[in-house]
Nucleic acid binder design. Structure first.
Length: 452
RNA sequence: GUGGGUAUGGCGCAGUUGGCUAGCGCGCCAGAUUGUGGCUCUGGAGGCCGUGGGUUCAAGUCCCAUUACCCACCCCA
C-alpha cells in the first residue's frame, strides 16, 4: 500500500488503552470487586451503553446534559450513558413487578462524559456500582453497609491508606435553614466542597459571591471545617439540635450510619465525618460519601455515592428509595498505576510456558490439558523459533515457569521445569513437576495486588 | 466552554546566539552462547524534527497559521 494511504493509528483523548501487562492487573482488580459484591448478595445487571435520549436525560439538566455524548441515527435520538445509576432507575421502573425488593444489584461498565480530559479524568471510564433499592422504604443500616463493602474491597486489594468521608445532606440543609438560606442551595454546597482545595479565604469570598453574608459564611465555614473524631463531631452537632426538623433528622441518620459502620468492622481511621463533603450528583438527599486515596487527594474521589429518596420518580409513580456507591475504577487504577502501587509480579498471562523442542507437539498438547485441569494457566510456544526466542518469550511475559519438552524428556517420560525467577531447573515426573509449581504459585496467589 | 503549555525514531528526552551526514537513554533485531532468558559486550534497523506557509545563502532552531495532545478552571469517578 502506498505510504500516503496509511492512516496514523491513534486513540481519542480521554480514552484509556492499557498495555497488556497492565490490563491483566486491571482485570484482577475488577474481578475482586465482582467477587466482593457477590459476597454481599448483589445481583449483576448489565444495561446498554446507548439509551433513548428522552429516557436517559429525563431528569438531568445543565452541566450533566452538556457532557452527554448525544447523536442521531436515522430518526432515533440516542445518548451514551454518563453513569450507571440513571440506567438502573430505568431498569427498576421498567421491571418493577418482576423485581423482589429490597433489590441489591451491582454493575460494572463503561460510561461516557464529553468533558475535557485531564489528569485522572477520562471521557470513557469504568464505574463499578452497587445500589440497594427499597420499595417504599429502606433501612438506614443499608447506608452503613455500603461503605463497609468499599472498605472490604480496598483492604482485600491491599490498600489501607484511604479515607471514606461521610456526610448527610439533611444536616447541611438544616444548617442552611438555620442560617436563613435556601435549604437546597446546591451552589453553596459546591463552594463549601472546594474548601480543602482553595482554602478558607477563597471559600469565604466565593460564598459571599453567591449571596451569603459574611457573617453566615464565617459560621458555615467554621462548622464545616471542624475536624475531629467522629464521636466529637457528632457531639458538636448535637449542640445545634432543636432548631430545624431537617437537621435533627439528618443528625439522627448520620449518627446511626457512623454507629453501624463501626459495627460492620470498619476501623475508625478509614471513615470520617466530613461536613464539607457535599457533592456527588444532585439527586442525593441524605447520606453522602466520597472516598480518597490519602496520598493523592488531588486526583479526586475514587468512589462516591449516597442515599436518594426517589430514584425513579421520572419513570414511575412508585416511591423507590435507594442507597449506593460507585467506584471510579479507571481513575482508581490510574492512581495505582501512576504512583507505583501495583504489584507488577502479578501481571503474567500464564503460570507456565511449555516449550516443545521436537516437531511433534502431541506430548506438549496433552500435558497442557493436564496442567489446566490442575488449575495451572498454561500456554504452549508453538512457533518454529530458536530455543532462545522461546525462553525469551517466557521472560518477557513474566511467566514464572518454563517447561522444556525435548527428545530426552519425552523418551524418559519426564518434564524439565525451570523456575524463571530463581533460575532453578529440574527434570521430574509430570506429577512431581505439578506439585512443585503449585506450591510456588499458591504462594504468589497470596500476594496482594496493591503493595503500598 | 475558558485560560496556559508542549509537539524531535516504538517510549522518554537533548539539541546551545539559525550553519556541515539530527544525537542520547530505554526498547527492538542479530551475534558472542545452534537445549537456557534476565546481566555484560559487539554490531544493526528505525526520524523528510506534528501539518501548512513565510523570513534567510542556510530553519529542529525565528515568524504566522493550523491541528493534536497535556495541565488547570468549570464539573465530576
Amino acid at each position: 500500500m502506498a505510504k500516503g494511504n496509511i492512516i496514523t493509528p491513534r486513540t481519542l483523548s480521554g480514552f484509556m488503552e492499557l498495555p497488556p501487562q497492565e490490563q491483566v492487573l486491571f482485570e484482577r482488580i475488577k474481578a475482586t470487586l465482582e467477587d466482593t459484591y457477590q459476597m454481599y448478595g448483589f445481583y449483576p445487571i448489565d444495561t446498554p451503553v446507548l439509551e433513548y435520549s428522552n429516557v436517559l436525560l429525563a431528569k438531568s439538566a445543565g452541566e450533566t446534559e452538556k457532557q452527554v455524548y448525544r447523536f442521531n441515527k436515522g430518526d432515533k435520538d440516542l445518548s451514551m450513558r454518563f453513569d450507571l445509576t440513571v440506567p438502573l432507575a430505568k431498569y427498576v421502573a421498567k421491571n418493577y413487578s418482576a423485581i423482589t425488593f429490597p433489590f441489591k444489584r451491582y454493575a460494572i461498565g463503561k460510561v461516557y462524559r464529553g468533558e475535557r480530559a485531564q489528569k485522572g479524568r477520562f471521557r470513557e471510564f469504568y464505574q463499578a456500582d452497587i445500589d440497594i433499592i427499597g420499595d417504599g422504604s429502606l433501612s438506614i443500616v443499608n447506608d452503613a453497609e455500603i461503605p463497609s463493602i468499599i472498605y472490604s474491597i480496598f483492604t482485600d486489594l491491599g490498600l489501607s491508606n484511604f479515607t471514606i468521608r461521610i456526610n448527610n445532606r439533611k444536616v447541611l440543609n438544616g444548617l442552611f435553614e438555620m442560617n436563613g438560606l435556601d435549604d437546597s442551595a446546591t451552589d453553596i454546597m459546591r463552594v463549601i466542597d472546594k474548601i480543602d482545595k482553595i482554602g478558607v479565604d477563597a471559600t469565604k469570598a466565593e460564598l459571599i459571591e453567591v449571596g451569603v453574608t459574611e457573617e453566615v459564611a464565617a459560621t458555615l465555614i467554621d462548622i464545616m471545617t471542624y475536624k475531629d473524631t467522629n464521636a466529637n463531631v457528632i457531639a458538636k452537632l448535637e449542640g445545634y439540635k432543636g432548631r430545624s426538623e431537617v437537621f435533627d433528622l439528618g443528625l439522627s441518620e448520620l449518627s446511626d450510619v457512623i454507629y453501624y459502620i463501626g459495627k460492620f468492622g470498619v476501623p475508625e481511621e478509614n471513615y470520617r465525618i466530613d461536613l464539607s463533603i457535599a457533592r456527588g450528583l444532585d439527586y442525593y438527599t441524605g447520606t453522602v460519601y466520597e472516598t480518597f486515596v490519602n496520598d493523592h487527594p488531588e486526583i479526586g474521589s475514587v468512589c462516591s455515592g449516597g442515599r436518594y429518596d426517589n430514584l425513579a420518580e421520572y419513570y414511575t409513580k412508585k416511591s423507590l428509595p435507594g442507597v449506593g456507591m460507585s467506584i471510579g475504577l479507571t481513575r482508581f487504577f490510574y492512581i495505582l498505576n501512576e504512583y507505583k502501587y501495583l504489584n507488577t509480579k502479578l501481571n503474567s498471562p500464564a503460570d507456565v510456558l511449555i516449550i516443545p523442542m521436537t516437531d511433534d507437539m502431541s506430548a506438549a498438547v496433552s500435558i497442557s490439558a493436564t496442567l489446566r485441569e490442575c488449575g495451572i494457566r498454561t500456554q504452549i510456544y508453538m512457533e518454529k523459533k530458536k530455543f532462545k526466542a522461546k525462553i525469551t518469550y517466557a521472560n518477557k511475559l513474566s511467566i514464572p515457569f518454563a517447561m522444556f519438552l525435548g527428545e530426552d524428556e519425552i523418551a524418559a517420560d519426564k518434564v524439565t521445569i525451570k523456575n524463571m525467577i530463581t533460575g532453578n531447573q529440574e527434570t521430574l515426573d509430570l506429577d512431581a513437576a505439578i506439585d512443585t509449581m503449585v506450591e510456588v504459585l499458591e504462594e504468589m496467589d497470596e500476594e496482594s495486588i496493591i503493595t503500598k
